[in-house]
């Protein structure tokens, strides 16, 4: 079985993450593992033959076995609301992959890394964290309900900084704006480590530009845009 072959995936387990997101554990016959940061292509076919294809990052670590994808509901979306709200255990759809050889972290990279995630951009970063990446993490979210994996990140003792762009939790004294140069500088004044940036296209491009402005080598910045 090659990664490019479409295979039937069965939803083994569904775990709600936030009011708008869920993690689906998939049973994929012949699954031969993945690298932290990779994604799968997903294809759904309606009864009338209509097909929709999407990409979802894998949230689990390679050692976790069956791949888990975390899906955040997109307003007006076609596939994500189905994944988050309608899908049930034992449902099936097609997947192929895993794919991606650039936005990945391998255990051989033992130096500390920086990670900056916007919204569901945290998903592939979480796979790297779960795989043991020595990371400092900056997460931009609309509000508290929008932060994926918060309990687990705290339990793991991850060096985590948060900024809320729409609504702050009561008593919040931290950042409450979009990621900008000043924030990046305060968060991490040292230039040098590899940086992973993932999120909506506008978020990724603005953060990557700011990092370059602050002196980061573009060759050390690895980005993934999800639209």
């Amino acid at each position: 079985m090659r990664p490019t072959d479409w295979r039937k995936a069965t939803v083994e387990r569904i775990r709600p993450e936030t009011p708008r997101a869920a993690t689906l554990t998939l049973n994929v016959p012949g699954w031969s593992g993945h690298r932290a940061g990779q994604h799968v292509d997903v294809r759904l076919t309606a009864d009338d033959g209509y097909q929709a294809q999407r990409r979802y990052s894998i949230a689990s670590a390679p050692a976790d076995g069956a791949p888990q994808i975390t899906v955040v509901e997109v307003d007006g979306g076609e596939v994500s609301p189905w994944m988050v709200s309608v899908a049930r255990e034992e449902d099936t759809f097609e997947v192929r992959g895993p794919f991606g050889g650039w936005f990945v972290w391998d255990p051989a990279h033992t130096e500390p890394v920086l990670m900056i995630g916007g919204g569901s951009g945290l998903v592939p970063l979480m796979s790297m964290v779960r795989a043991g990446a020595p990371a400092r993490l900056l997460v931009s979210a609309r509000d508290r309900d929008d932060v994926l994996y918060l309990d687990e990140l705290e339990k793991r003792g991850v060096d985590l900084a948060l900024t809320y762009t729409r609504r702050m939790p009561l008593g919040w004294t931290g950042w409450n704006r979009r990621v900008d140069r000043e924030m990046l500088w305060k968060w991490q004044p040292r230039v040098g480590p590899r940086v992973y940036v993932c999120g909506p296209t506008a978020f990724v491009e603005s953060v990557a530009d700011d990092l370059v402005f602050l002196g980061h080598d573009p060759a050390n910045i690895r980005t993934e845009r999800f639209g």
Binding site: P3, G100, W102, P200, T201, G227
Partner: peptide
């Protein structure tokens, strides 16, 4: 909105 090359990894593979 554009995406980036990660998005076509499957199609190119």
């Amino acid at each position: 909105t554009h995406l980036d090359g990660n998005a076509v990894a499957g199609d190119l593979a």
